[in-house]
Design a protein around this nucleic acid. Structure first.
Length: 315
RNA sequence: ACCGGGCGACAUAGC
């Protein structure tokens, strides 16, 4: 049966629904109720293939057959419910788990909290956050980060920042995600100075900003029209062992568009081409269109030739 | 039951 279970999971990874179900049915025909492990296998396959409704039906069938879900089953079904957008369903699964004597771990709680936070359902997120602690499960940094995302999402950035201190007062250290999140969200509400402060705090507390942190900051500068600052970051990054990536360049190029600095944008494109970075075709065509629209016809043609030479298809 | 290991949760541009 173990072998058949693994086969089902492999079909799941390969998106072969029919095959997976056939193996599962075969286990049924073998005489007895499929064991939990087989239900878990088919559920895992279905969830992998995003057949969430089928997974839900399978779960119902399983319970109807008197097969007790275990921790793995619940972990899968929580994922399934969240993907369907049925967060209340996910919450009641958490409660079911406890009633069935399964240990709900920090990842289970955090997963649900994270989905609630992404939708801004902070009351429910906080409720689970409290509940997990009552059940003896301490939040970890991912849990805190999820809560911070939620607070930012609903516009409570102040509170989000306060959580940074709360985290530090527990035996839990903020990580680069924490700082990046805060930098990004302070940028997004136009509070660049504070974003920069948070950025510096990361540095002083020994957390190295990475390319994502820089990109968030660059985006903030661009959205506020501080293009020079954004361009400065490009120089600063390599000094901090961070190489700009496609997102960095894309961010700044669109920023330059908005500031009508089309030639600067083109220059940046040439620079990155020299370093072996590429832009997406979408960005390239946007650049091309802007050059045309703004009358830089020769540059546009030059760019066009370059795109052609790079051998990509273009329209 | 206990121990050890693996898997599953978090951040940035454009679309």
């Amino acid at each position: 049966v173990t072998i058949l279970n693994n086969l089902i999971k492999l079909y799941g990874i390969d998106s072969k629904i029919k095959e997976a179900l056939e193996v599962f049915d075969f286990i049924k025909i073998e005489g007895h109720m499929p064991p939990v492990s087989s239900y878990n296998a088919i559920l895992s396959a279905l969830v992998n293939m995003k057949r969430n409704s089928m997974a839900e039906n399978m779960f119902t069938e399983m319970r109807g057959n008197g097969v007790r879900p275990n921790k793995e089953t619940y972990t899968l079904m929580i994922q399934c419910m969240c993907r369907k957008g049925n967060l209340d369903g996910a919450i009641s699964l958490l409660n079911d788990m406890i009633q069935n004597g399964c240990t709900v771990d920090v990842v289970n709680y955090t997963f649900v909290i994270s989905r609630l936070c992404r939708r801004g359902r902070m009351e429910q997120a906080s409720e689970i956050f409290d509940q997990m602690q009552k059940n003896g499960c301490e939040p970890n940094i991912v849990t805190y980060n999820s809560m911070i995302i939620g607070l930012c999402f609903v516009g409570r950035v102040e509170e989000a920042l306060e959580w940074l201190n709360i985290i530090k007062s527990k035996d839990c250290k903020p990580n680069i995600y924490t700082y990046t999140l805060l930098v990004d969200n302070f940028c997004k509400v136009g509070r660049l100075d504070e974003a920069k402060e948070i950025f510096n705090e990361a540095l002083t507390s020994g957390i190295k900003p990475n390319v994502v942190t820089y990109n968030a900051l660059a985006n903030g500068y661009c959205k506020e029209g501080k293009l020079d600052e954004a361009l400065l970051l490009l120089e600063e990054m390599p000094q901090n062992d961070c190489m700009p990536d496609m997102i960095t360049y894309t961010t700044i190029i669109y920023g330059l568009f908005k500031g009508n600095k089309i030639l600067e944008a083109l220059k940046l494109h040439d620079q990155m081409a020299d370093k072996g970075h590429e832009l997406s075709m979408k960005t390239l065509t946007d650049l091309f269109r802007r050059l045309c629209r703004d009358g830089y016809t020769t540059d546009a043609i030059r760019l066009f030739r370059k795109i052609e030479k790079s051998g990509h298809r273009h329209d």
